[in-house]
Amino acid sequence: MNHHTYITGRMIRMGRLSGKVVIITGAAMGQGAEEAKLFANEGAQIVATDLQTEALEAVVKEITDNGGEAIAVKHNVASEEDWANVVAQAIQHFGKINVLVNNAGITTDKNLENFDLGSWNKIIEINLTGSVLGMKLVAPEMKKVGGGSIVNISSVAGLVAMSRTNGYSASKGALTLVSKTAAVELAADKIRVNSVHPGVIMTPMVAAAVTEKMMAGLKMMTPLPRMGEPKDIAYGVLYLASDESSFVTGSELVIDGGWTAQ
C-alpha cells in the first residue's frame, strides 16, 4: 500500500522509490510501460523515453492523471546525441538522476543460415550499444548525488541457447557481462549495476515474434503453469532500483518461471 502526504496542496507519493528520478527507455509499451507506471506509483519521478511517441505520451498521461510525475522524451537509444538530450531533460525537469532502466530492445527470429549484417547491426546498436551509451551518459550525474542504480534488461537468451535468436542472444549475452564490468568499475562511486533476465513474457514484441503454436510450446517448457507478464518483471526491477538492494551489484536476476532451472 502506498502512503500519501500533502505539502502546500500538492500530493506527494511516499513509496519504495520516493524522491528518486528514474529514466526508463522503451517505456511506450510492454515491460517499460509497466515499470514506468509502477515506479511512479512508488513515488518516483519518471523520464519515459521511446521512439513511439504517441504510445509513450499515453503512458505518461496515465501516470500524471493518477497524480504521478512523468515526462515523455523521444529517444533513439543508439544515438549518443539523443542520450545527451534525455539526460539534459531529466536534469532540467527534476534536477537529478538516481536510477536508469535500460529496457529498450528489439528481437529477430532469423537462424544462422538466414543471418544478414543489417539486422545484426541494428540489434547490437539498440540492445547493447544503447545500454552502454546510457550508462556512460548517466553515471556522471549519479556520481553528483552520491550513487545510483542501473538496471539493464537482458534475457534468458543472454544466459542459455535459444534457437533463431543469434543476434538477440549475442546482444543480451554481451549486455550481461558489460553489466558486471560496469558494476565493478562504478562500485567505488556507489553506483550499482545489475541485469535482469526475463523468460518468455507476454509483451507486444513477443506476441509479434511467435506463432500460437510456438507460444503453446513455450508455455509447456515453463515449470510454473502460466506465461510471464510485464508486471512480473517490473516488480523485480523495482527491487533493484530501490534502496532495498543497496548491497546488490553485478548480479543477474532471472525471472523466467523456472525455465532455465531445468
Rank of each mutant, 00 (worst) to 15 (best):
L51V: 04
E81F: 02
F115C: 07
T203M: 08
S171L: 11
W83M: 14
G228I: 02
L186V: 08
Q52F: 03
S251W: 05
G258L: 09
I63E: 02
D50S: 10
S171G: 07
A44Y: 04
S79A: 09
Y235Q: 10
A44R: 02
I150L: 11
L133N: 13
M221A: 15
I24G: 09
A207L: 07
I106R: 10
V193A: 08
A188N: 13
K143C: 09
I91L: 15
V206S: 08
L253I: 08
M11H: 03
T49C: 14
V254K: 09
T108D: 15
L175R: 10
Q92N: 15
I201Q: 06
I233F: 08
A182K: 05
D256K: 07
A161I: 01
T181Y: 07
P225C: 02
A216C: 00
I126P: 01
L240N: 11
L238F: 00
E125N: 15
V254D: 11
S79F: 01
D232M: 06
N166Y: 03
E42N: 01
A241G: 14
G19P: 04
A209R: 06
L238T: 01
K213P: 00
D50C: 02
Q45T: 12
V21D: 04
I191V: 11
D65E: 13
T8E: 13
I150D: 09
L238G: 02
I91W: 08
S119L: 15
L128N: 14
V22P: 03
G105V: 09
K136C: 07
I71M: 13
A104S: 13
K122Y: 04
I71T: 13
L137R: 04
A33M: 12
N85F: 02
E252Y: 06
L112C: 06
V254C: 07
V178I: 14
T260V: 15
G68Q: 05
N98H: 15
N102K: 15
